[in-house]
Design a binder for these strands. Sequence first.
DNA 1: TAGATTGTTAATCGATTAACAATC
DNA 2: TAGATTGTTAATCGATTAACAATC
Lengths: 226, 226
Amino acid sequence: MKNRLNKELVIRLLKYRRILNQLKNLGFEKVFSNNLGDAIGVAPALVRKDFSLLVLGGNKRGGYNIDYLSEQLNRILGKTREQKIVIVGMGKIGTAIAQYKGFLQGDFEVAAGFDVRAVDVPPGLTMPILSLEDLPEYVAKNHIEVAILSVPEDQAAECHRLLKEAGIRGLLNFTPVELKTTPNCIIHNINIGVEIENLFFQVIKNGLPLHLELADGAGSEEDDSE
Amino acid sequence: MKNRLNKELVIRLLKYRRILNQLKNLGFEKVFSNNLGDAIGVAPALVRKDFSLLVLGGNKRGGYNIDYLSEQLNRILGKTREQKIVIVGMGKIGTAIAQYKGFLQGDFEVAAGFDVRAVDVPPGLTMPILSLEDLPEYVAKNHIEVAILSVPEDQAAECHRLLKEAGIRGLLNFTPVELKTTPNCIIHNINIGVEIENLFFQVIKNGLPLHLELADGAGSEEDDSE
DNA sequence: TAGATTGTTAATCGATTAACAATC
DNA sequence: TAGATTGTTAATCGATTAACAATC
């Protein structure tokens, strides 16, 4: 039982699905490996290989059927499941994410926000903001499995512990503290500071394109989404 | 002139630097490849290989000197440069990022925000919020090279075009539209929706740890920060 | 000396791409 | 048939890890 559906593949599948939905909305029926590869920035051969691995067939000259692919990807990726999350840390980033429109198309719902302090509920926010003390009970009662962590750096470790004890199985961590995945709790870290530092470095390294190359090893280079 | 300092390596170096600064603040003087590997989640051999590649030597029994490593990483990563960015799209996410505290430690400054609409400057925000029309002139005058894009999905393409025309060299894209790197403008996409979808999928796949494995190929698996 | 850690080579692992036969 | 695209194999590429000699 090898590692079918590895990390990179799953991300590609999620991106395929998004593109397919957009194409469907535009009234398209067929799509070629070519198109999908361009759209997500990989070689067409990889698109074909992905679908081949999942036993999703196309037509030798007609490409792939969008409706069929879309359905199958929903099956594989588990579209139907109700997906509720909580946000721990209702500061600027937390409330911004709580109001993120993209969640609607993704079938997510932010069930509640939590904070140590009493926080004014910002206008337009529909979910309750509760005290951190109530987290364990809320998570258990509402079967919450996934959380977003957006507290200040010095509270990250403590909240992490609290969330694991409450039985959270997946955590999207926006704090600068790099948390570690354990068998019971998968962590994905998004470190905005490092992202910006990295982008700056790549820009400097990339240098001025044709004329005026930088001194040392400043070749241009492909680089894509993370 | 091969690809020294590739994408993964640079990210590791940025993370090493952050850890080293923290250790320095705690009064440490030496660190072992062991420690750094644990801290950022890679094998100690890779830490040693990284430093070896950059000709940063340690002591066969005393590990690495933190001050020295830190200095050298600053040299390699270009710490000193003044780093100003602008944010395009001062909605919830844009303003949240504008107030992000982590920037201070990273030597960044958000020079200005831009928006199509007249936006009330939120309390506590020190930078000006200008009209998108003023972007090209502002970017040219202040030598801005890097921008953050946080507009609604339907404005992403247009703003992307505008930013490239204005001469922006690097763009951190928070919109759900996947933008493509060109020779003149490096794009890093952060798609929060996909991140959450991905986390949900990994959680379901990870299943219940020991008892009650899921049906098909639901093995547990290492997974780390993106 | 004994023990521990670096520095470096070789092996491994895995993902992507190139290429092409099959076929609609 | 000619042309285009899939499906699949083999080649490539690159990153990580294992292992161990060197050495402090």
